[in-house]
């Protein structure tokens, strides 16, 4: 039997945080939001740049895209999620996350699905570019991506050999 050690440690964070002075939570959040605004242009440039890279390497009309690494596409999505910090509209980071889930599942099962990737990339463009779309419509797109992914995962599971 492994010996379990249970103990309390001094919470330095607490000691410093409630030591008087400082600022109100509302003020701290407002300052952080304001500070993030300063990075807005750089973040948008990153998103545009990465989306262009995805189109150039993994676009539906690109020949030989099947030879590219799914992992590399996954790596291109992650900085987009990082940079969407200044985009407070719903849907865009969720769609990125859905594409990551899809790529993760593709890599796990070794079954690649380009049509599904194309739909996700098209949704990313749509959600990023369209400024006038309502939150409800944006969430409908995200839900659609989720259903598409689940349908695909279900289809892949059905074709897998069953354990006797």
């Amino acid at each position: 039997m492994t010996e379990v050690r249970r103990f309390r440690v001094r919470n330095r964070l607490r000691a410093a945080m409630f030591d008087g002075g400082g600022k109100l939570v509302a003020e701290a959040l407002a300052s952080a939001d304001k500070a993030l605004c300063a990075l807005s242009d750089a973040c948008n440039a990153t998103i545009r740049n990465k989306l262009a890279q995805i189109d150039a390497v993994y676009g539906s009309s690109v020949e030989g895209r099947a030879a590219e690494s799914p992992r590399a596409l996954y790596e291109l999505i992650l900085p987009i999620i990082d940079a969407s910090v200044c985009d407070t509209r719903t849907g865009f980071p969720e769609a990125c996350s859905s594409l990551c889930d899809l790529l993760d599942h593709c890599a796990e099962k070794g079954v690649w699905d380009w049509p599904c990737v194309d739909v996700h990339v098209a949704a990313l463009h749509c959600l990023y570019v369209d400024q006038s779309m309502s939150s409800a419509d944006r969430m409908k797109i995200v839900m659609g991506l989720s259903h598409l992914r689940q349908h695909r995962e279900h289809s892949v599971a059905e074709t897998e050999p069953q354990v006797p």
């Binding site: 410093a16 945080m17 030591d19 002075g21 400082g22 600022k23 109100l24 939570v25 509302a26 701290a28």
Partner: peptide, 9 residues
């Protein structure tokens, strides 16, 4: 929002 915090140290 009205709680006071001090992260300076």
């Amino acid at each position: 929002p009205s709680a006071r915090i001090n992260l300076e140290k």
